[in-house]
Amino acid sequence: MGTEELLLNVVFYLFAIGAVVASIAVALSTNIIRSAFALLGVLFGVAAMYAFMRADFVVAAQIIIYVGGILVLIIFAVMLTHKITDVNVSNESAPGPAAVFAVLCVLFALCVIIATRTWDRSAPAESLTSMEKLAGDTKPTTAMVNVTLLQGDGTTGVLKGGEVRSPFVVLRYEVTQAPSTAEAAHFALECSERIENQPDEKKRWAPWSPVKETTVGLTNGLGTRDERLSNLKPGRYRWTASFVGGQGTLALAGGKPWTIEGTTFTVEAGLTRPLGVALMSRYLLPFELISVLLLAALVGAAYIARKEVKEL
């Protein structure tokens, strides 16, 4: 585990434990003001979780609407309906131990489901590129290599349309069928970045400097090897991978080196642009309905909370 990864884990667990402690404080505190301020901690902790999930727009919405709006509203309600000295909020008729037992049962069931369930982590099929594509125009050989583009955490594939939401990606070489073991073959990886506003078609794809050409040894036969590209700026990229070095069938089949034209992929800066596009296209009707609902809630809340005016 590298330093960057370790740091990410430590910061995640700090925020996660903070959120858990604050939510338990909301549940157990007998002082309602303390509950409200513990809720503030939960909301900030949850916002940090969204940040860990790279959902930047949701972080902003969480802080502005939840912390800035709902929490202030709740604290107002607490102040309006209670004297500060009035702290007794617990329900005398509440079956405390029974409630604790029931909640722990629910938590246990949820954790069992989370631990045992296997989620469908497969990427959409078109984002996979395999060596079979290439094998068509060359002589048959026994080598079979799949190259998969993965999101940075290594567990997820690239989204439809070659969209990457993290600043780093993983290129996974998977040798499913090896050539003869004596053969020494290497992969050269070239990643290039698209230069927008470049009129010359030939100069539009510039080699991307940090990983210009990486050589990956595949001499060990079958296996998987991950190549991590980090610090990708938002933009469009494409990659090509080719066999270099080595002797015989694998390196030069049909007189030219094997090359995989990789998929083009976009590194998204965050969730904001995809969310905006989704809200204005597929989710336009729900979006408008919610705006009407907010207006109705505003009018209704003002109507309920106003003072009765007796007509003469």
């Binding site: 939510s23 909301v26 549940a27 909020v89 409630a99 629910v106 938590l107 949820l110």
Partner: peptide, 13 residues
Amino acid sequence: IFCAGLYTVMTRK
């Protein structure tokens, strides 16, 4: 967090 919320809803008046 869900269980904490559930407990709050169940036990508070």
